[in-house]
Design a binder for these strands. Structure first.
Length: 428
RNA sequence: GCCCGGGUAGCUCAGCUGGUUAGAGCGUCGGGCUGUGGACCCGAAGGUCCCGGGUUCAAAUCCCGGCCCGGGCCCCA
């Protein structure tokens, strides 16, 4: 037989996986809403012009899913993230009261080579605040991200923080780099290739003396102290000072963050603080990222509106969480009760019993294919249904059900009216 | 683009020091047994052993190329 599978990097989500994903998303939504973010969704497809010029050369050159509609010949693209669609949405709804706080949980598409924690279709969970230039907005984003991770059960993670203005002030204005990108790319690898590796790369690209200066900057390590050290060294620079004041206020409000001058991030549209979350345990890349993008909305409206936000990568969180054992599907089925019909001549009673249980709010499954008792029991076990209800002659004659909880090893014969109560006891 | 591992039944895989009719478990289907339900019994169907070439009397098995999947690098986030 010919094999048909999803395209490379795309996945099916079978029920057990969906239940876990739904649980994870539910927890994240609860945190987002606790802070008063409203739900938003936008189309999977955007006009190419909407997304063009927003992400940087590499993204647009090879990472975006882009196509020409064969009928209209118009150019479209699958959305690459949720931030640019937000900016587009704002530009179409300029009457929206600001600050606008929204969350957006939806798939995005990137044409990358799949790997662990990397797919071509994956969900992002975005939270953004549109309409505030102040550090408290950024601080809130930091807190929401941290709280989401804690809600999911993660404790070993770092929220790395930096600022695009500071990067630009230090590397372009102070150190005079015309093209800082290769330098950024090198220092961004600090975690991966170590200080010596970075030093080598830098020596090759900018020469030894500059490399030394850069190394001394990024080797200050993380934390508030290194931030203050860098900030005081460059306090004479207006742009650096602006960034430093912003970061100072941000960190005074937000939960614990790690300042890190080597954090860069790839997207073009960031203009201020940038953040990234990495887990201590599995090396799976970043699980969240974000930052301030005060000029992005202006590219649509002509008028800049300050905005800041972050995105949690649910695939990596799930992959990592499962690996760490802090996430696992608590159930593999939505069914509460599997009603096993021992003798199909009592189908009508079984049917009535199922309806009765459903009316009480329970999820009840009854075999629609007249399977043997044995195979019904097997299916129930395999699904992990918490309560099995048997219906045969004696139950039908006495208006009752025999309930069994495999987990508890308990069984009870109860009147149909009392069945929901007993089921709930078995479920608890 | 590069490096590793893999591709055998619907699924998970064994077989791979070449050698009759290619196997297991699970699942599916059929039958039997069973009213206390965490592995019951019997039977059946189901394979282009990824594709192409080569070596050989003989290839699922060895060699080369390709395709696909997974992981890693680069990159990205």
């Amino acid at each position: 037989m010919r094999e048909y599978r999803p395209p490379r990097g795309f996945r099916d989500f079978p029920p057990e996986v969906m239940l876990l994903r739904r649980e994870v998303i539910g927890k994240i939504v609860r945190v987002f809403e606790r802070y008063g973010y409203e739900p938003l969704d936008t189309p999977a497809v955007e006009n190419w012009e909407t997304l063009a010029g927003k992400y940087g050369e590499e993204a647009e050159g090879k990472l975006m899913w882009r196509f020409t509609d064969p009928w209209s010949k118009k150019e479209y693209a699958l959305r690459y993230d949720l931030t640019v669609p937000l900016a587009r949405f704002i530009s179409n709804n300029m009457d929206i009261p600001l600050p606008f706080k929204r969350y957006h949980i939806a798939p995005v598409w990137r044409h990358e080579e799949p790997q662990r924690g990397r797919y071509r279709e994956f969900y992002q969970c975005d939270v953004d605040i549109v309409g505030s230039p102040y550090p408290e907005a950024d601080a809130e984003i930091v807190d929401v991200v941290g709280e989401s991770l804690r809600e999911l059960g993660f404790s070993g993670f770092r929220i790395r923080l930096n600022d695009r203005r500071l990067l630009s002030a230090v590397f372009e204005e102070e150190l005079g780099l015309k093209d800082p990108l290769p330098v950024y790319r090198s220092i961004d690898k600090l975690d991966k290739i170590g200080a010596e590796g970075v030093r080598k790369e830098l020596t090759r690209t900018v020469g030894e003396s500059l490399a030394e200066k850069i190394m001394s900057l990024i080797s200050l390590g993380g934390g508030a102290d290194s931030m203050r050290a860098i900030c005081s060294r460059y306090s004479h620079n207006a742009k650096a000072k602006e960034a430093c004041d912003h970061l100072e206020q941000l960190t005074s409000l937000a939960g614990e963050v790690t300042f890190d001058l080597s954090l860069v991030r790839g997207l073009d549209y960031y203009t201020g603080p940038i953040l990234e979350v990495v887990l201590d345990q599995p090396k799976i890349g970043s699980v969240a990222g974000g930052g301030r993008y005060d000029k992005l909305i202006g590219t649509f409206t002509g008028k800049d509106i300050p905005a800041t936000g972050a995105s949690l990568g649910i695939e990596r969180l799930i992959d990592a969480g499962v690996e760490l054992g802090i996430l696992k599907a608590s159930r593999s089925t939505v069914t509460d009760v599997y009603l096993v019909v021992v003798d199909w001549s009592f189908l009508s009673y079984a049917w009535r019993a199922a309806k009765e249980l459903r009316r009480s709010g329970l999820n009840v499954r009854i075999d629609p294919a007249r399977a043997s008792e044995e195979s019904q029991r097997k299916r129930a076990r395999r699904l992990g249904v918490p309560v099995i209800a048997f219906v045969g002659m004696s139950e039908a004659e006495t208006n009752s059900l025999t309930l069994y909880s495999p987990a508890k090893g308990e069984r009870a014969v109860v009147k149909l009216e009392e069945a929901p109560l007993v089921v709930r006891r078995f479920l608890s």
